[in-house]
Amino acid sequence: MTGRCPAAHPEDPTACVGPVVVTVLDAVNAGADGCEHHGARLLASLAGGRVYALPDAPQGAAIRVFKASAGIRPFCWVDGPRTEPSQFSAIENRARQGR
């Protein structure tokens, strides 16, 4: 693969980690295929997103992306203060709510 996977946001400076193995869909079923790294970062940035393993993906790829996304802040490559729940990771929001 040359370049980066389709799930990599144009402003995200990170390189792909591994091959394209998942499809990430948003709430209206628009989606992109990606490596586990960018799949997790994309999923973390979506409200109501879902992840599915591609047919040739290694065992557990989708669940790894799902679990990783819980600890990633939406649009994590954007600097600046974060004050709204939508700007924190799912794990951070659970901790802030005492769960």
Rank of each mutant, 00 (worst) to 15 (best):
L42V: 03
Q59R: 12
S89Y: 08
V24E: 02
R64G: 03
R99E: 14
V78L: 13
Q87N: 10
G31D: 08
R73H: 00
F75Q: 10
G48F: 10
P19E: 06
T83I: 06
H37K: 08
Q59W: 12
V51H: 04
H37T: 07
Q97S: 14
G34Q: 06
E36F: 00
I72H: 05
V22Q: 09
Y52M: 01
L42C: 03
C35W: 05
A8D: 02
L43E: 07
V17H: 06
D33R: 13
L43Q: 02
N93D: 10
S86W: 12
P58R: 14
G49T: 09
L46Q: 09
A30G: 12
V21N: 06
A57P: 06
L25G: 01
I72P: 00
F75V: 08
L54T: 02
G3D: 05
I63R: 11
A95L: 15
S86H: 03
A40W: 01
R94Q: 12
D26W: 11
G3F: 07
C16M: 04
G48T: 10
R73D: 00
K67R: 04
A32S: 13
G34P: 04
A70L: 05
F66K: 06
G31F: 11
L43C: 04
A32R: 14
V28C: 11
T14P: 00
N29E: 15
S86A: 15
D79I: 02
D12T: 06
A32V: 04
P6M: 08
R94P: 01
Q97E: 15
E36W: 00
H38D: 10
D26T: 13
A30I: 13
W77P: 01
I63T: 09
D79H: 06
A7D: 13
E84G: 04
A47V: 14
A15S: 02
V65M: 05
N29K: 12
S89K: 05
A27M: 15
P10M: 07
E84R: 13
A47I: 14
